[in-house]
C-alpha cells in the first residue's frame, strides 16, 4: 500500500519537475527538487501516506460537490422561454436531509482524525530512538549552526548524516535551538518542518532511506534575509560519513604558502565572529570556517562556494546577501585575494 502511494507521489513530482524544467531527478551531485512527494526519510514517507489519503478523500468530496453545483446551475437555470411570472415551489428545509449532511461529514472527519492522530504519535518522538545520532541545530539570523556534540566539531549550513550504522538504518535526532528569533527547520524530503524557537529546545526525528543531497530552508519569517537561510543535507553511506567526520575532526590545515593571508585574517576583525580551530580565531557569532572548503555554498546558500564568489563575498557580502550581519571589511583587492588564498586551503 505504502509503496504504491510513494510511487504515485514520485510520478507526480516527476511531472512537476519536468514541467518546470528543473534539474533532472537524481542526477549525480545535484539535488532533487525539495518536494514532499519525493520522501527520502521515514517521517516524510509516513506523512506522504497520510497526505495521499486526505487528498483522496478531499478530491472525492470536491468532485461530488462541484459536480452538484454545476449540475444545479445547468439543470435549474431559468430558460429564456420561461415567462417571468411563476415562482418555483418553495422548500423550507428537510430534517432528515439536513441530519444526513450533518452526520456524514462528522463521520468523515472522525476517520480523518483517527488516521492523523496515529501519524502524530508515530512521527513526534519525544525521546531520541536508541542509537540515534544526535546533532544540535542552532538557527541564527541567517544561517545554521550544526553542533555534532560527542563527535567534537561544529559546522555550518550543511548537515551531513549517515544512511546506516552497522548496516542498520540510522536514526537521526536533531535538537533545535535558536540564537535570536524564531526560525523553522524544513527539508521536505526528510521530514515535516519544526520551528526553532528561542528559549525552547525542539526535536526533529529523521531516518533517511536513500543517500543523496537534499535541500530545504528556513520556513518561519525571521527578518531581512529569511529567503537566504538555506539548508543542505547530505545523506552519506556509512563509509563516506566516517571519512567526512574524520576530516571535520581535524584542526585547520596549516599551509606555509598562505601565511601572509592567514596573518592578515588573524589581524582583522574576522576572528571576533569566526572560529578556525587550531588558530586564535574563536568567535562564535558566525559560521565556523575550519573546513570552509568542504562546503559547497557561501552565506547559507546565497552563493556557490567558488573562488570568484568567495572573493566577491569577502570583498563585500552586502552585494550578495544585503542586510546580512557580516560587514564589508574595507579590505583592498590585494588583501581580499590574500585572505581568500588562505581560506581556500581550509579543506
Amino acid at each position: 500500500m505504502r509503496r504504491a502511494f510513494v510511487a504515485s507521489g514520485w510520478m507526480m513530482s516527476l511531472l512537476a519537475a519536468t514541467a518546470s524544467g528543473a534539474a533532472p531527478v537524481c542526477a549525480p551531485g545535484t539535488a532533487e527538487m525539495p518536494s514532499m512527494f519525493l520522501p527520502r526519510s521515514e517521517p516524510a514517507e509516513i506523512i506522504l501516506d497520510i497526505t495521499w489519503l486526505i487528498i483522496g478523500i478531499c478530491a472525492v468530496i470536491f468532485i461530488v460537490m462541484e459536480g452538484l453545483i454545476v449540475w444545479a446551475i445547468i439543470r435549474y437555470r431559468k430558460k429564456r422561454s420561461e415567462s417571468e411570472g411563476g415562482e418555483p415551489p418553495q422548500v423550507y428545509g428537510s430534517n432528515p436531509v439536513e441530519l444526513a449532511w450533518t452526520v456524514i461529514p462528522l463521520l468523515i472527519v472522525f476517520v480523518l482524525f483517527l488516521v492523523s492522530a496515529r501519524g502524530i504519535f508515530e512521527i513526534d518522538k519525544q525521546e531520541p530512538p536508541p542509537g540515534s545520532l544526535e546533532v544540535t541545530v542552532v538557527g541564527h539570523r541567517w544561517w545554521w549552526e550544526f553542533d555534532y556534540g560527542d563527535l567534537g566539531f561544529v559546522t555550518a549550513n550543511e548537515l551531513h548524516i549517515p544512511l546506516t550504522k552497522d548496516g542498520e538504518p540510522q536514526s537521526v535526532y536533531l535538537m533545535l535551538e535558536s540564537a535570536d528569533v524564531i526560525h523553522s527547520f524544513w527539508v521536505p524530503q526528510l521530514a515535516g518542518k519544526m520551528d526553532v524557537v528561542p528559549g525552547r529546545i525542539n526535536h526533529l526525528w529523521l531516518q533517511p532511506s536513500r543517500a543523496g543531497k537534499y535541500i530545504g530552508q528556513c520556513a518561519e519569517y525571521c527578518g531581512n534575509q529569511h529567503a537566504n537561510m538555506l539548508i543542505t543535507v547530505y545523506v552519506h553511506t556509512e563509509e563516506e560519513f566516517a571519512r567526512w567526520v574524520e576530516n571535520q575532526q581535524k584542526e585547520a590545515v596549516e599551509d606555509a604558502a598562505v601565511a601572509e593571508g592567514r596573518d592578515l585574517f588573524m589581524s582583522t576583525a574576522c576572528i571576533n565572529c569566526h572560529t578556525i580551530r587550531g588558530t586564535v580565531a574563536d568567535g562564535t557569532f558566525a559560521p565556523d570556517l575550519t573546513h570552509l572548503m568542504s562546503r559547497s555554498v557561501l552565506g547559507a546558500g546565497a552563493a556557490a562556494n567558488t573562488p570568484d564568489r568567495l572573493r566577491e563575498w569577502v570583498w563585500d557580502p552586502q552585494n550578495i546577501k544585503p542586510g546580512c550581519d557580516m560587514p564589508s571589511m574595507k579590505l583592498s583587492r590585494e588583501e581580499t585575494d590574500r585572505i581568500c588564498d588562505y581560506l581556500e586551503t581550509l579543506k
Binding site: A44, F62, S116, G119, I120, K193
Partner: peptide, 21 residues
Amino acid sequence: LFGGLTGIMLAVVPFDWQVSD
C-alpha cells in the same frame, strides 16, 4: 469549497508539518 477542503487538509497535523508556512 476548495479553500475549505484545503483547510481540512491543513488541520491534519502531519500534513501541516510539511506545508505550514
